[in-house]
Computed example of a mutant assay.
Amino acid sequence: MGSTSRRRDGGPATLSRAWRRVPLLLLTAALVVSTGTVVASITASAPPPSTTEQARLDALAGLEGLAAAFEKHDDGDSPTAALLRSQADLLTLTTSWPSGSPAAAETTEVPSAAGPDAPPAPQQPGAEDLAELAGSLLADARETDPGLARLLASIGASLYAQAQTLPGGTAVAPPWEDPEIPLEPTGCPAEAPTEDESGPATPASPTTAEAIAVVVLSQERLAYAYETVLPHLAGADRAAAAARLAAHTDSAEHWRSLAVAECLDLPLPEPAYPLGDEFASDPLPALEDAEAAALAPLADLVALSDGTVREHAVAGFAEAATELAASAGEVLPAPGLDDELRAAPTTAP
């Protein structure tokens, strides 16, 4: 009886059990504190944007800021502002956390890159402002992930083409540099085998060599088309076609030389290429359509390359898109991607 009474009154047995609980309580408290700290650090703020995401935000802010400046300067009736707005729409994408789960509620809005340190929009925007933004986008296209790279290159080329249509635009220098072909290598690594002990290799995504091969094919086909229709043209049309024939011949040689320097194997040129009947009946529109179609392989090469090859791809794409806009008299929001973007449901690639 005495022993039972002592336990009910908090005697030695009760104290012993209480002390055994102390380490468990301390461990639980430590877990709660550390877990709370981790949760707070996750929900407090989103991670910093990647280089590619920051390039997208910078491009979006630049397009929207310049569009607002053109609208204000032209009292709301500005074809250039409309072009810039349509290009900004192509850059509006949904963001997510690196894990793939949606961002927290307070971070789901696309942040604006036009912070307090952003340069103010010009009071009287013009061709130089468009060319400057074009140069920024083309520079970012050399460094970002493939999908955004080709879109930035396309929009940047369009901006410079639009600059050419504004007063003083033809005097604005292109915002890109034509990179030089690197010296040919003294030796190229042996080609990797296509099969191993497990059997034939599985199909892979397109390679840089394959992308360059498509560009070369399109340039050689265009040169052949101009050479074919040249005897049927006269006057200014003949002179313009002769210039384009020389340009596409040089372009094909340029890409073949770059492929050699990069140790990339390309197929040999074809002696002739099939052409549709429209090249004989109505050659000028057919040539213009072929010029437009040749932009897509250049855009793909921007995405499927890096380093030196991508630098050449960005410059070559921008030059070709600018020349096409000048000859066709129309500036598209995303040359080379327009058909693809029209087929897309709601978002840009």
Rank of each mutant, 00 (worst) to 15 (best):
P349F: 09
P79C: 03
L230M: 04
W19Q: 10
H248A: 05
D289E: 14
W255F: 12
D237Q: 15
A141H: 02
A127M: 06
A296I: 12
A292P: 00
A121N: 06
A88F: 02
L324N: 11
G187H: 11
A223W: 00
A280H: 02
S16N: 12
D338N: 13
P48N: 12
G2K: 12
V32Y: 00
A105G: 09
A131D: 06
D237K: 12
S86P: 02
A318P: 10
G156S: 05
S86Y: 01
Q219N: 14
T346V: 13
A69P: 10
P297E: 06
L159V: 08
P102V: 06
W176V: 11
P189N: 03
L275I: 03
E195R: 13
D338T: 15
A161I: 08
D178Y: 01
L268P: 04
K72C: 01
G199M: 05
A149E: 03
A292L: 14
V39Q: 12
A114R: 14
A161L: 07
A149H: 00
E184N: 12
A321L: 08
C188P: 01
A299V: 08
A246M: 03
G62V: 05
S86C: 00
A134R: 06
Q162R: 15
E227M: 06
A243V: 10
V229N: 04
R8A: 11
G65I: 03
H248Y: 13
G235I: 07
V22D: 00
A118R: 13
A104G: 13
A303V: 02
A296R: 15
P179H: 05
A30M: 09
E143N: 07
T35D: 09
E106F: 07
T28G: 12
S154W: 03
Q164S: 13
E195D: 14
R20C: 09
L341K: 12
D306Q: 13
S218D: 14
S16M: 14
F279C: 00
T80R: 04
A190G: 14
R221L: 09
L217R: 14
E132N: 13
E106M: 10
A67P: 07
S3A: 14
S99Q: 07
T35E: 10
L183G: 14
D338G: 12
S158G: 11
V32W: 02
A161H: 06
E53P: 07
S158N: 05
G307Q: 04
T194L: 15
A211I: 09
E262W: 00
P200V: 10
A105N: 08
E262I: 00
L31Q: 00
A68W: 04
D237H: 11
A313C: 07
L138D: 01
T108L: 14
D306S: 15
P79S: 09
S281M: 01
L268R: 13
A103V: 09
R20W: 12
Q123W: 00
E311S: 14
V309Q: 07
P269W: 07
L301W: 06
T228D: 02
T52Y: 09
G100I: 10
D250A: 15
A294F: 06
A239M: 05
E191W: 01
A234P: 01
A313V: 08
P206S: 12
